[in-house]
Simulated assay, not measured.
Amino acid sequence: MAATTQDGHEPAVAALVTRVAEAEAELHAVAMRWLDPLPMPAELTLRQLQVLSLLRASPGVTGAALAEALDVSTPTMSGIIDRIASKGWLDREHDPADRRRVLLRISGSGTQVLADLEGPAAQARGRVLARLDADELADLARLVERMRDVARQIEAERDRPGSAAGG
């Protein structure tokens, strides 16, 4: 049996994981040097940013589902939702199938907050990707899609009751 590192990888695989992490960190550092200061609204917290991102990805989600996704209590999430709603960054609507449930959606101004924050990074990414040829882009797309699929798999395992990943 081959020796493994602390994270369970064989040494050759661990070296590749390190290469990927180091290259990704350097890419991030280079891109950050290109960016002007981000137009971060002073009143926007990291947790609110997470909620806005989740609302954009999952329109019509409930506060309870957001609380579960971010591993906070429902009362805590209710306060976060109230603060975001007071800024006009989300819309609430009653579920037509169950009027007791409130469904949440990111508003147009909430979408604009995210666009303002993500725009400069998207431009930096575009500058880099523009220098890759079609074969390199195809390889990158395949690998990023695979990473996304693995992340979804891990998330599903984590969410499965009684799973080792679920804690």
Rank of each mutant, 00 (worst) to 15 (best):
T4P: 11
T4R: 15
Q6I: 10
Q6Y: 09
Q6H: 11
E10V: 09
A14P: 10
V17S: 11
V17I: 14
R19M: 10
R19D: 07
V20K: 11
V20P: 02
A21G: 13
A21V: 14
A23N: 12
E24R: 07
A25Q: 07
A25N: 11
A29K: 05
A31L: 15
R33V: 04
W34F: 11
L35E: 13
D36Y: 05
D36L: 11
P37E: 15
P39C: 02
P41V: 02
P41Y: 05
P41M: 06
R47I: 09
R47C: 04
Q48W: 10
L52K: 09
L52C: 03
S53T: 15
L54A: 14
L54Y: 09
P59T: 06
G60T: 10
G60A: 10
V61D: 05
V61A: 06
T62I: 13
G63S: 08
A64F: 12
A65S: 15
L66H: 08
L70F: 13
L70I: 09
L70M: 15
D71R: 15
V72Q: 07
T74Y: 07
T74D: 12
P75W: 02
P75N: 07
T76R: 12
I81V: 15
I81A: 08
D82E: 08
R83I: 00
S86K: 15
K87V: 00
W89Q: 10
L90T: 06
L90V: 05
D91F: 05
R92K: 15
H94R: 14
D95C: 06
D95A: 07
P96E: 14
P96M: 03
R101W: 04
R101F: 00
V102N: 05
V102R: 08
V102A: 03
L104D: 09
L104C: 01
R105D: 06
R105T: 12
I106S: 05
G108V: 13
S109Q: 14
S109T: 10
S109W: 01
G110Q: 15
G110M: 11
G110V: 01
T111N: 08
L114T: 04
L114A: 06
L117Q: 07
E118H: 09
G119D: 02
A121R: 12
A121M: 13
A121D: 04
A122F: 08
Q123Y: 01
A124F: 00
G126V: 00
V128F: 02
V128S: 00
L129D: 06
L129C: 02
L132D: 03
A134Q: 02
A134T: 09
D135N: 07
E136G: 06
E136S: 07
L137S: 06
A138Q: 01
D139I: 01
L140R: 12
L140E: 02
L140F: 07
A141D: 14
A141H: 07
R142G: 08
R142W: 06
R142Y: 02
R142Q: 09
L143Q: 12
L143Y: 05
R146A: 13
M147F: 04
R148F: 06
R148M: 08
E155V: 01
R158E: 10
R158K: 14
R158P: 03
D159F: 00
R160K: 11
P161S: 04
P161Q: 03
P161F: 01
P161H: 04
P161L: 04
G162T: 10
S163G: 10
G166P: 02
